[in-house]
């Protein structure tokens, strides 16, 4: 274990996040949460989750051959 998440787990997380985008459970829910409609709050939180997902990809799945290119050309 080198501290990196396995690729399959990152794929699962990415697919899960994609599926969670279609929040049919809030479709007809007009409740106000934190001052805004819950359907909008959900998608604002979703943007933060996307940031988290990107941080995981950058940390654990960075395409190393791209860095190799940089070193060999530099």
């Amino acid at each position: 274990m080198n501290g990196r998440l396995p690729p399959w787990l990152l794929v699962v997380l990415l697919v899960l996040l994609y599926l969670l985008h279609n929040d049919i459970w809030f479709w007809s829910d007009a409740r106000i949460v934190a001052g805004l409609p819950v359907g909008m709050v959900y998608h604002i939180v979703y943007c933060f989750a996307a940031t988290g997902m990107m941080a995981l990809l950058v940390k654990h799945a960075w395409p190393s051959h791209v860095d190799d290119d940089e070193e060999s050309d530099g």
């Binding site: 994609y18 359907g39 604002i44 996307a50």
Partner: peptide, 18 residues
Amino acid sequence: GIGVFALMPSISALVIPV
């Protein structure tokens, strides 16, 4: 209404950086 935020920006927040 609010569905526009889900329709355009929130999915772009995932797909574009990916």
